[in-house]
């Protein structure tokens, strides 16, 4: 396997740990919901798989993957935004 990819992977692991380490527990629910939306990037994978699908089975399953991925990414960001718009400071 390409060592560059391994390098990127390890860096991303460290960054992921670092940016979360000091988050107050009051934001854990939006944070979980927000990172949940980010793994909706699987939509990219679904699109690329479906783009080259040939058999009816592959087309069907690829279509399901795109629907799932799109629901994950769009729904995830929307629901997180809905939660966060309610966090207000004292007037």
């Amino acid at each position: 396997m390409d060592t560059n990819l391994l390098f990127i992977f390890i860096l991303a692991v460290i960054v992921g740990f670092e940016i979360i380490s000091k988050v107050p527990s009051m934001l854990h629910t939006p944070l979980m919901s927000g990172t949940n939306a980010i793994h909706g990037i699987i939509l990219f994978g679904g699109i690329l798989t479906l783009a080259d699908a040939a058999s009816p089975v592959a087309l069907t399953l690829g279509f399901v993957a795109v629907v799932f991925g799109a629901a994950n990414v769009f729904g995830g960001f929307m629901v997180t935004d809905r939660m966060l718009q309610m966090f207000k400071k004292r007037k």
Binding site: A12, S21, I41, G45
Partner: peptide, 28 residues
């Protein structure tokens, strides 16, 4: 799982995003 798919497809954005979620989710 998304990060692994990113490796397979050769899409670095997927690799980075999936790994970020994987590590931050573990810590959370």
């Amino acid at each position: 799982a998304v990060a692994a798919d990113g490796l397979v497809i050769g899409n670095l954005a997927m690799l980075v995003a999936g790994t970020l979620v994987g590590s931050s989710g573990t810590l959370l």
